[in-house]
Design a binder for these strands. Structure first.
Lengths: 134, 134
DNA sequence: GTTGACTCTCCAGTTACTGGAAAGATTACG
DNA sequence: CGTAATCTTTCCAGTAACTGGAGAGTCAAC
C-alpha cells in the first residue's frame, strides 16, 4: 500500500496524471486513507503502468479504456486486442508516410536555400508556391 | 475583393479557421464592408495560403508568426528563414525515429499474436512488460 | 415576400494533461 | 513538544489550434 507519489514514481507517471486518470474514470477510483489520501496497491500500479505503456504506443485515452477492459477481462479473445493494435499500426504507418513526404519537401527547400544575408529565399517562396505558381 | 467564404475556399482553409487566424492576430484584421462583413483582397489571401502551407509543414502558430514576419519583411536574410526551417527539419527527423521504433515494437507484438479466440495475448502482455518482467 | 445561403458574435467543447492557490496531514529535526 | 518542510487534498484555469452551435442580422434569387 502506498500513497500517490510512490505509485506515480513506480508507474513513471506524474502525480497529476495519476489523479487525472482516476478523475476521468480511466482507472477506478482508489481507496482513501482516514485522512483522505489515495492509496494504491500493486494491482492498481500495474494498471497505471499498463496505461502509460499504451499511451507511449500512441493509443488514445479511449483506446486505452478499451484495451484496459480487455486487459481486465479474463475471457477476451486475443483477436479483439489484435484488431485494435493492427488499426493503430496502420495509423502509424500512414503517419510515417506523411512525415516522410513532409521531410523530403522541406529538405529540398532547405537545400536550395543559400542561407546568406540576401533576402532571396527558396523556403519562403516554396511556402507560398500555390499562389506563386498562379 | 471577396467575402470570407470565397477567401477561405481560395486559401483552402475552413471559414472558421480564417476568422480564428485574425482573432489571434496571426494575420491582420481584415477590412469590413458596410454591413460588417470581412473583405479580403489578393494579398490577404496570399498570406492565408502561406500560413496554411506552413501549418501543413508542421510549423506551430508561433513559428508561422515568425515566418510570416520574415515573409513580409523585404530586408530579412535567407539565413533567418533557413535557421527556422532547419530546426523544424530536425524535429521531423526525430519524430520519424520515434515513430519507427514505435512501429517496430508494436508490429513485433502484433506478429506474435495469434488473434484467435483464446485469451493468451502477447500484445496485452507486452504492454504490461515493465511489471511482468519484475 | 419569403426562402435559403451567407455572415456576424459569443460561448462551449475538444485532447490530455499541467500549473497554481489555499488548506489540511504527515514526517523529520532539534 | 514545536515547527518547518514535505505531501496531499480540491478546485479552477490554462494550454494548442481549432471546431461546433446558438441566435441574429444581411443579401440575392425566384
Amino acid at each position: 500500500m502506498m500513497h500517490i507519489s510512490a505509485a506515480a514514481k513506480t508507474a513513471e507517471l506524474p502525480v497529476k496524471t495519476v489523479r487525472y486518470y482516476a478523475d476521468i474514470g480511466l482507472v477506478s477510483a482508489p481507496e482513501r486513507s482516514e485522512a483522505g489520501y489515495r492509496t494504491y496497491d500493486e494491482s492498481a500500479v500495474r494498471k497505471l503502468v499498463f496505461v502509460r505503456r499504451a499511451r507511449e504506443f500512441g493509443f488514445s485515452i479511449d483506446e486505452c479504456r478499451e484495451l484496459l477492459s480487455l486487459y481486465e477481462d479474463q475471457n477476451r479473445s486475443s483477436a479483439d486486442v489484435k484488431r485494435i493494435a493492427t488499426k493503430r499500426l496502420e495509423e502509424i504507418a500512414e503517419k510515417q508516410r506523411e512525415l516522410q513526404s513532409l521531410h523530403d519537401e522541406l529538405a529540398h527547400l532547405v537545400d536550395a536555400c543559400k542561407g546568406d544575408e540576401r533576402p532571396d529565399c527558396p523556403i519562403i517562396d516554396g511556402l507560398g508556391w500555390v499562389v506563386a505558381s498562379e
